[in-house]
């Protein structure tokens, strides 16, 4: 009887241990935000490569307050990205804005700009990037202020003003 009980306990121990390890690991495998300097940040992406990517496209970037501001003017359209950072260069907030003439449609590249900013926490996660593109595309032209929580980040896209489309995300404590 003792051997049977020990065998059963061992089976239960192993099965539950492996099961719980796999379950918890998979639940934490989503690329959600992490704690940083009392805030909530993208875990591994730093601001430097984001700024470098925009500079490579001719955007002008500068430190302003506690973050970076990058902007570019093409004709009557103004693009501006603000990146809130910690002392470790971690990103806790991103705000992208497209200012355009009221009578002009939001162009394909303006939409790409908003989608790119919104995809920053998920650059290695194609399914979530696809979800983000779909969400941004739908909200950028519906003339509303929309919010959503996606993989631990709070997203907001305000297209209620036809002159200025504003997108913001920041990490949310779980």
């Amino acid at each position: 009887m003792l051997i049977t009980a020990l065998a059963a306990a061992l089976v239960g121990l192993l099965a539950a241990g492996i099961g719980c390890f796999a379950l918890v690991t998979s639940s934490r495998d989503a690329p959600g935000p992490t704690e940083c300097d009392g805030d909530t940040c993208i875990p591994t992406l730093r601001a430097a490569p984001v700024v470098a990517a925009l500079k490579s496209q001719g955007h002008e970037c500068r430190i302003d307050g506690d973050g970076w501001v990058c902007d570019l003017d093409i004709g009557d359209v103004h693009y501006e990205l603000e990146v809130g950072i910690t002392s470790e260069d971690q990103i806790y907030e991103v705000r992208a804005e497209v200012t355009k003439p009221e009578d002009a449609q939001l162009s394909a590249q303006s939409l790409n700009y908003l989608v790119w900013a919104a995809s920053l926490p998920f650059g290695d996660d194609k399914p979530t990037m696809s979800e983000i593109r779909s969400w941004v595309t739908g909200r950028a032209k519906d003339n509303k202020d929309s919010k959503a929580k996606i993989s631990g980040y709070e997203y907001e896209l305000d297209s209620s003003n036809p002159h200025t489309i504003t997108f913001t995300f920041r990490g949310v404590r779980s």
Partner: peptide, 23 residues
Amino acid sequence: AALASAEPHGPSAPPPVTGLPNG
């Protein structure tokens, strides 16, 4: 064990810049 072994997970580079507004 799973919680203790979990590492922060996410990209280290931004998405490709293809199609962004260019200077």
